[in-house]
Design a binder for these strands. Sequence first.
DNA 1: CCTCCACAGGAATTTGCGGGGT
DNA 2: ACCCCGCAAATTCCTGTGGAGG
Length: 398
Amino acid sequence: MPDSSSFFDADDPIFANKDLLRVQHLPEKDRIIGRDEELTQLANAIKDATHGQTPNNVLIYGKTGTGKSLCTKYITNDLVESAKQNDIEVGVAYVDCFQDSTETQAVRSVADALNLPAETNISVPMSGLSTSNYYRRLWDILDAQYDVGLVILDEIDKLDNDNILMQLSRATESGKLTESTLGIIGISNKIRYKENLNERVRSSLSERDLVFAPYDADQLRAILRSRSDAFQDGVLNDEVIPKIAALAAREHGDARKAIDILRYAGESAYERDSHTVSEDHVNEAHEREEQNRLSELISKLPTHSKRLLHALALQAQQHDKNDPEIPTEDVYSLYELMCEQEGSDPLKNRRVRDLLSELEFLSVIRQRHKGRGRGRGAHTLNRLVDESELVIKACKSA
DNA sequence: CCTCCACAGGAATTTGCGGGGT
DNA sequence: ACCCCGCAAATTCCTGTGGAGG
């Protein structure tokens, strides 16, 4: 710690403006790197909304950290502003379908995001309403407040059913909306997402398709440089940005990961009272990034899922083999034991199987189904994707 | 090759919760 | 204040099946 009278009033020797390195940070246009074409295409697709007309529905594909959400947020913000010049009210609802994966949750979330209770006198309770009731309120909110509604469905492939897409895409034509109209922007990590949609939804949802390619090392360098004024002058050693860019490019061109590593490297340097950020800090930050991503995911898990994962990790650790496969029944019995120690009632076997397959869906674990046979044998084998130690640490801290 | 059974996983049912309607 | 409703989570019920043991 710097020798000052307070822990808080010292000038930060490393960071000048850390906000630039936060994932949620929405950069200025000239700081969005290598996406000019995509931004233009997206803007063209939805520009009708600035005149109060129905925009095209858009589907955006691309791996994580390729700037899909960022560009969408930027363009929609911009759109709302330009529409205002024409006295057109555009409302944007951003929904993370990973968090709100059921139809009800997603509609509720859209309605809640668009609603200004003071103006509409409509409330959007967290729960307790039927799905159709949430829809009804959503239509009322749109008609009362807006000329155009834009619904951004991020991680749209995580939706458990596409009824909401049906409802939203037909809202205007079916007369649910009278004073307003509606556009959908779907964002998906999976390029094949469109394939398992029914024909009607598919054609209306993907009037325009955009694909975001992964960033290459050059682009990642440019992105990191554009955010480097988050740091004080001269604290970043020359090799830091190229090194991080190379790491991130190797791991699927994920810009978010690159930025996270840069931030962690800075924090690492700070904690070690170093006045510069060096390659060593980058290496440390890289490990930290992996651990953190995992902890974050695990901390959001329901208690029982966490406990199950913990049980699986403990057993994986006991095996001498690397990457061992643990039968479900073994996981379950340890889990029961752990519940007993914690003094809570264990879930039943059936439920546990569902939770485990949810964990697989989140790719925290992998499952392999092996033959059934007479007598012994659990027939689904579970293994961790990440190091058992990392998982255990994450389970304990959460 | 055939049998047969323990588990996977689909479906129906119950429980808990947080709201509306009256 | 009361009852009723819809949803999500959990539980109970049930059927289908892969391959070890015969």
